[in-house]
């Protein structure tokens, strides 16, 4: 058995939260729904990223709620252009910063982070091509997909990140169909396949783990991808008060495994005995039609995926493992 060194700071005592950076760069007065997991996630990401950050936002919930003219919830430079091209706009900004630094028009020693925020629709579906191009070219950009598992901004339509069996307005559960009919697209693995230095999954229910991963992503040169699990009380049909709890349960049941892949090396950052998926599924309106058979199918898939991640972790941490990332 290979010993994997795991970060411990994420699971310190409750008082550890006080260690989180105090500066708020995604400011209040935004118009996200009550208990919005994405807004909470953005707030945490911005704490980690800090002031020297340019944010590129794809069209979507977070863009809408944070920028109805004349208000902006962004204390850092922020740009929104369209739905599918956030990674492309970020590529251009990265190129600009590189050349302006080379020419001395920007201080070459000043580190400027570029962070993209895009939803699951803007990432898994319409923005996938631009994201792939950005990662393949290795731009110095951190792409954060806040995944609320459907097109929430337009009223809960299914995306390719909508989980199997979930009811949405375009994948409704009916007499002959049971909701979303195919498995959630595995975006972190698509990012890993690009051989970029850093890929991670985060959930704002684990804020210190999130902050650490964002900082790591920004430290490493080149493109980084972070998949942020964003609980959506409105779209999922859960009480807003349970938003953080739902995120925690998604992690604890293995529905949303927390891990990071640094230069090709996998590391599970939450690896405990998993709770049954039913605990996560049962209190959400979007899953209430699921039959025991379907829940069993989901459980098998979750177990298989978690086991696969453990295998990947072990295989990629062997002393003789050589990663192509970063070479």
């Amino acid at each position: 058995m290979i010993e994997v060194k795991r970060p411990k700071e994420a699971f310190l005592s409750v008082f550890a939260y006080r260690m989180a950076p105090k500066e708020e760069l995604f400011t209040r007065g935004h118009r996200a729904c009550q208990g919005c997991g994405a807004a909470l996630g953005l707030r945490h990401v911005m704490k980690a990223a800090g002031r020297n950050t340019i944010v590129v936002n794809a069209t979507g919930c977070m863009e809408i709620v944070s920028s109805p003219y004349p208000y902006t919830s962004w204390a850092v430079p922020w740009i929104h252009v369209a739905f599918e091209n956030a990674a492309a706009v970020a590529s251009g900004i990265d190129a600009a910063i590189k050349v302006l630094k080379r020419k001395g028009k920007l201080d070459p020693n000043k580190k400027i982070n570029i962070v993209v925020f895009a939803g699951d629709g803007g990432t898994a579906d319409i923005g996938l091509q631009a994201l792939s191009g950005m990662m393949a070219r290795g731009h110095n950009v951190l792409y954060v997909c806040y995944d609320n598992e459907a097109y929430m901004n337009t009223g809960v339509q299914g995306s390719s990140a909508t989980p199997y069996g979930a009811h949405t307005t375009t994948t409704p559960a009916g007499k002959v169909k049971f909701g979303q009919g195919y498995w959630k697209k595995n975006l972190p693995e698509i990012a890993v396949a690009h051989g970029i230095p850093y890929v991670a999954t985060v959930c704002p229910s684990f804020p210190l783990d999130l902050i650490r991963k964002v900082k790591r992503a920004l430290e490493l040169p080149g493109a980084a991808y972070i998949h942020l699990f964003a609980v959506c009380p409105t779209g999922w049909g859960i009480p807003p008060a349970y938003a953080v709890k739902a995120g925690r349960l998604a992690v604890e049941t293995g529905i949303f495994p927390l891990y990071e892949v640094e230069y090709g090396r996998y590391r599970l950052t939450f690896d405990k005995k998993l709770k049954p998926v039913e605990e996560y599924l049962k209190f959400q309106r979007r899953f209430r039609h699921l039959t025991p058979d379907l829940i069993k199918t989901i459980q098998e898939r979750v177990d298989a995926e978690f086991a696969r991640l453990r295998v990947m972790e072990e295989a990629t941490n062997r002393p003789d493992y050589r990663s192509v990332s970063g070479i």
């Binding site: 760069l25 209040r28 007065g29 935004h30 004349p70 208000y71 902006t72």
Partner: peptide
């Protein structure tokens, strides 16, 4: 910046040059 400005009062491209001014919008 005003909620209902005249067109002459807009910055080019509707740029907002008051960072984080949504703190003025009470939710």
């Amino acid at each position: 910046l005003k909620e209902r400005p005249k067109w002459q009062e807009l910055l080019p491209g509707c740029v907002i040059d008051e960072p984080g001014n949504s703190v003025n919008y009470k939710t």
